[in-house]
Design a protein around this nucleic acid. Structure first.
Lengths: 343, 343
DNA sequence: GAGTTTTACTAAACCGCTCTAGTGAAACGG
DNA sequence: CCGTTTCACTAGAGCGGTTTAGTAAAACTC
């Protein structure tokens, strides 16, 4: 028993192939009665469109691509990633659009995939993550003329629509909070300076430090790994002017930093306040639970999906969108600094 | 300038369409000289096959599907997932096979996707994860006659080939180790009893307890969430006959359990040994680092990819494969129990 | 009620590739 | 040297849809 084609339906309903196509796609040109007959036949025979056949006739491929250039370890480790994926999925599956995932070594390979998938008509559009400073992928996607949505910004994403969060505002509110608690020495275990958002956060911290008259406000760049997060923390906690509060750019690094504090006998939050710029299960399950800036990554994925679908339906129609500004969830890892407390 | 088709190449090389198809697919029927001429023309024109057109002519769709019925939270939280994904990718991309990812609500929806994607010829095969007791998905995939590889087992996967790890052996070695350290009261914060591997582990613990004459060997089933992991731990640590060692079925629960111990003032490893059945970044970055059974999930993904590709190439040719038995990595969370130590 | 428009439907081309059947020429066999 | 096999290649029919052009009948128009 082979799968039914529209020809089979046509025969069964006693009409032509074209009539079936019209009926199944809700196009005019068939009477209501005939349409019902055709639809009934189709559902009786359990017909499903053959994606490839549809795609061949110039239609959509009904899939979007997500290509990520990150080491496998990172993909597994960062809850951000899985949540984004799940959110994207949820947004896409409602219209039964598939997500093609590809994990590659580096940006060059990533660009190669964009080229290939576009020319093979493999996907209808792309989601671009990890926006970098002077990102090489942006001009390629622009040149290919394929719909794409950038997560990140603002700025640096050319003419591609972007969904961005106000990293600057988030950092300022974070520092305000720590300063209000009485912290004067705040250090920042940052991410990779190649990333756009890392730069914005570093700059924001500098500005806030000047405004609030903080004693110290160092940003230490890392590659986002737990190893570098840990060693940056170790270095900062070993300095004679040990900071009383640490801001970590990722949840993974925050947890790693917490472990370093424990290992060095620095009590959190009594002797050190810890804040994460990224919230997730991780920050909640450790002890003490970490105060963190949270954004709804799952919802973010859904928003991106919606933007991309709109961009595919009507290229050029989608403008930049500002996502929700991350909100601070205070947990057990922050407190007024020990020294000021007595004052 | 529109994308070139094999017709364009044929014209340029002065041959027929069919000759081009033969040449590009390495099929016999063209002389070496002509073949070279055709390949040269194709690469000059930067030709790429149109996937849909290929798929339409009965060929493969060059994609495999991974459908997961789990809450979004879990996907993000468990490093296992991302690593598996990355490993699968690596194994597939070598032959430029795409991975279609779909995250759904429940098993019924998952089955629906299997049906749809198969009849739409959307993918050439599936990877099935989270094998359950009397899994309903297995008979469906068998009925559909689509190539599929199951992660999990042994047993319960019908005629589908499976890649399984020896959970029983792993549990036995774990308990042996704890018993050798002197632990007599061992408790097990298990996963979901609906899962095949959870049942095997519970049974293995019971057997080991009998053999080693352990005082106590309770298994507490959970839904794998950090919340249930934490509350199970809380209950176990509150009991009058508090266990001296806890085995957690997942890294997330182990970390959550560690936090509960800290919160209850139970020192790890002095007052309690903690072991995780799953290793990942999580178990390494917390303090104290958790002793864990590790398997190379990335490699596992690659192995599954290879099996699936073989099953697609030659249905029925793939047999069950036993994956590497997880090995114990001892870290800081295990030690001889306090009371026995003095004896 | 003749001319025009609309409606409901069909035939067939087309998308880009694969693959079978067929063809003419060269190579082989005895 | 003629019949057979092999070789290199071509023509053209699909694959399962979409879509355009065309047609016959029904519905309007005045």
């Amino acid at each position: 028993m082979t799968r039914p084609t529209i020809d089979d339906i046509a025969r069964r309903a006693g009409v032509s192939k074209s009539a079936v196509s019209f009926a199944l796609n809700g196009r005019p040109g068939v009477s209501p009665a005939t349409r019902d007959r055709i639809l009934a036949a189709a559902s009786e025979m359990n017909w499903r469109p053959h994606k490839a056949a549809r795609a061949l006739s110039g239609a959509r491929s009904d899939a979007v691509g997500l290509v990520v250039a990150r080491p496998a370890q990172t993909i597994g480790a960062e809850p951000f990633f899985g949540l984004l994926l799940a959110g994207l999925q949820a947004g896409l599956s409602a219209r039964s659009i598939a997500l093609h995932l590809m994990i590659v070594e580096d940006t060059a390979a990533e660009i190669e995939v964009y080229r290939r998938w576009t020319s093979e008509r493999h996907v209808d559009g792309f989601v671009l993550v990890d926006l970098q400073h002077r990102d090489k992928r942006v001009p390629v996607l622009e040149e290919l003329g394929v719909p794409a949505v950038v997560i990140g910004g603002p700025g640096g994403h050319g003419t591609l629509p972007s969904l961005w969060a106000d990293d600057r505002e988030a950092m300022l509110s974070l520092v305000d909070y720590l300063a209000a608690l009485g912290h004067r020495r705040i250090a920042h275990v940052a991410g990779d300076e190649a990333f756009h958002h890392t730069r914005r956060r570093i700059r924001a911290l500098k500005d806030a430090a000047r405004r609030l008259d903080l004693v110290d406000a160092v940003s230490v760049p890392t590659d986002f790994s737990d190893a570098q997060g840990a060693s940056a923390t170790r270095a900062l906690l070993s300095s004679p002017n040990r900071p009383s509060a640490l801001i970590f750019d990722s949840d993974v690094m925050a947890v790693a930093g917490l472990a370093v504090a424990a290992e060095m006998g620095v009590a959190v939050p009594a002797g050190l306040s810890v804040v994460s710029f990224e919230d997730s299960l991780l920050t909640r399950i450790v002890h003490p639970a970490i105060t963190a800036l949270g954004r709804d990554t799952f919802a973010l994925g859904g928003q991106v999906a919606a933007m991309l679908l709109a961009a595919i339906d009507e290229p050029g129609s989608v403008r930049d969108v500002q996502g929700a500004t991350p909100r601070l969830t205070v947990r057990e890892s922050t407190r007024a600094p020990y020294t000021e407390q007595g004052a």
